[in-house]
Design a protein around this nucleic acid. Structure first.
Length: 281
DNA sequence: CGGAGCTCCTGGGGGC
DNA sequence: TGCCCCCAGGAGCTCC
């Protein structure tokens, strides 16, 4: 389940293989992967072929390969992977899109559950920089220089919306998914069902700090994976379940107080928390 | 228009 | 042993 740290891990791993390379050919094996592309598969192929890739960039969970005034924007969804292969290597059955580079290598997009998506889109202005058009409505992530920590905390406090829902709202703060939301809430000792209006601005800011810390540690470890679906660009899996305090650890002791971790359904998703450290009040 | 809920998708795993 | 159903969730979409 790629969240910000996993996507950043993919970006860093991909960069030396694709930066300053030309895309010589594009194969789309599953039209669904480019369903957002205006003009469909043919337009995707035409718009990507022959372009030179600059340094891969990222905001939140969105990754993109800048190509001139456009970008190949990639969202990995639930199970998307990018791998570098030689053309002779057999295609994995989940391969959806293949880019052949002028280096002779291939960049392969694999995606079992097909929530992932790719498109060639124009870059649009965003402050001092530029982002792909579909990324423009996404908020800055906690690692971006322009991330307004206090401003986001104030918005959280102003809303009668549960803290976990706000952490997952990509238009408020981007990059956080279900796993890091649970981990950040545990670290900040807050229950995810607590409302923003019941949370002081400084407490909301502390929660954002916790989210950034948890994700920074995951980036240092090279990403996190829990079901074997997430894989680094070279095919090796990042698997750091032991570093998680609460996610997927229902019934096991809270690392802080020993109380068994509880799993509940919230927002049609699973939520994991310590019933003592993170009281619902 | 903000907020909440629905939907897409697939293979692994559990239950019978 | 085999089959069926449930489960995981990011984000775009729809509805209120």
């Amino acid at each position: 389940m790629p969240e910000l740290p996993e996507v950043e891990s993919v970006r860093v791993g991909l960069a030396p293989w694709v930066s300053d390379r030309h895309i010589d050919a594009v194969r789309v094996l599953a039209a669904r992967a480019v369903r957002d592309q205006i003009g469909g598969v043919e337009q995707f192929r035409a718009a990507a072929t022959g372009r030179r890739i600059a340094t891969p960039a990222r905001r939140g969970k969105f990754l993109w390969l800048p190509v001139g005034e456009d970008a190949v924007v990639i969202h990995l969804g639930m199970s998307g992977q990018l791998r570098i292969n030689e053309p002779a290597e057999p295609l994995h059955p989940h391969t959806r899109v293949v880019f052949r580079l002028d280096s002779g290598n291939e960049v392969r997009f694999l995606d079992q559950r097909q929530f992932g998506r790719l498109a060639v889109v124009p870059l649009v202005p965003d402050g001092a920089s530029r982002v792909p058009q579909p990324v423009a409505h996404i908020a800055r992530d906690p690692f971006e220089p322009g991330f307004d920590r206090l401003g986001v905390a104030r918005r959280m406090h102003a809303r009668r919306v549960a803290l976990k829902r706000q952490l997952l709202d990509q238009t408020l703060v981007s990059g956080i998914g279900n796993i890091y939301a649970d981990e950040a809430l545990w670290r900040a000792r807050l229950n995810g069902e607590r409302l923003g209006v019941d949370t002081p601005v400084r407490t909301a800011a502390r929660l954002l700090d916790a989210a950034r810390e948890v994700m920074a540690e995951a980036i240092d470890r090279g990403g996190t994976s829990f079901d074997g679906l997430y894989v680094h660009v070279n095919g090796s899996s990042g698997y750091f379940e032991r570093d998680l305090a609460v996610y997927g650890r229902q019934g096991r002791p809270c690392p802080r107080c020993g109380t068994p971790i509880v799993r509940e359904t919230f927002m049609n998703r699973s939520s994991h928390f310590c019933p003592v450290c993170q009281r619902k009040r």
